[in-house]
Simulated assay, not measured.
Amino acid sequence: MLAAAAAARPVPLRRPGALLCAPVPCSLPASRVAAPFPRRSASLKISQLQLTATRFSKENDSGEDDELLSELREKWDAMGNKSSLLLYGGGAILALWISLVVVRALDSVPLLPGLLELVGLGYLGWFVYRYLLFQENRKELANNLDDLRKRITGDDD
């Protein structure tokens, strides 16, 4: 039926764009047009969800989760100065947010990214000359990093 309707109204081939603009006749009402893909029933989705939830609950051992939570509670209760931890954590989140805002603002200044890149390359050159070129300086850098690691971890060998 579509072929007959298309044949009844020929489209000139001189203009290829006319093929895109030509309306396609359709004699079927919208309610009778079949969907291209059959729809899944809701019961199938629910049964798959239940199967996944059952499998997930069997794989996870709630004893391990309870043990982890109890350890975290013990450490939180043993901490003496909770307000400073919350203050430092909030400050870290605020500093991260501000740094992201500042970086986006700095990208709008035309010469600043290039200038900062030049400063970074200069510092890199100085660092290589100061610590990496000569063996004595590399030993000094290794000792400085080892001392810093000991101060952070609290190891006093």
Rank of each mutant, 00 (worst) to 15 (best):
W76H: 05
R138L: 03
R15H: 12
A142G: 02
R104T: 02
N137D: 10
V33Y: 06
E136I: 01
L69M: 12
W97F: 08
P16N: 13
K75N: 04
V119Y: 11
V33I: 15
V24W: 13
L44K: 15
P36S: 03
L51I: 03
S83F: 07
A95M: 08
K45F: 02
A5R: 15
S47E: 11
V103H: 04
A95F: 09
R73H: 07
V128A: 03
L115D: 00
A78G: 08
A35T: 10
G154C: 03
L85S: 12
Y131P: 00
A7M: 06
A42E: 14
L94F: 11
P10H: 09
R40W: 07
E64K: 15
L69F: 12
I46T: 13
L44Q: 14
R15G: 00
L124W: 06
S84D: 12
G89E: 07
W97D: 06
G17R: 13
L145I: 05
M79H: 14
A92K: 15
M1S: 10
A3C: 06
G125E: 01
S47L: 08
G122P: 02
A18G: 14
S47M: 07
S84P: 02
R149G: 00
L141G: 00
L86G: 07
C21Q: 13
R15C: 06
A35H: 12
E64P: 00
L100K: 09
L87K: 15
K58M: 10
W126V: 01
I152A: 00
S31I: 06
R138D: 01
V101P: 00
E67S: 08
C26P: 01
G91D: 09
L124P: 00
K45W: 01
M1W: 02
L2A: 04
G63K: 15
N137A: 08
D155V: 04
R149E: 01
L116E: 02
S84W: 10
V103G: 00
P29I: 02
C21G: 15
L118A: 07
R138G: 00
V11I: 14
Q48C: 05
S31K: 11
P29F: 03
F37K: 14
L112H: 08
A105T: 05
M1T: 11
V101C: 04
S84N: 07
A7Y: 08
L51N: 13
P10N: 11
D66P: 00
L49P: 03
F127K: 09
D157E: 14
G63Q: 11
L72M: 15
Y131F: 13
A53D: 02
L94Q: 09
G114H: 08
A92W: 10
R15D: 13
S43K: 06
Y88M: 14
S27K: 13
M79D: 04
S57W: 04
V102K: 13
L68D: 10
L68R: 15
S84G: 05
L72I: 15
S47V: 04
Y88V: 14
S43A: 15
E71F: 11
L106G: 02
L132K: 05
Q50E: 09
N137E: 10
S84K: 07
G122L: 07
A22N: 11
R149C: 03
A6V: 12
G89Y: 07
R104K: 14
L69S: 05
N143A: 09
R104A: 03
V109P: 00
F127M: 03
R9G: 03
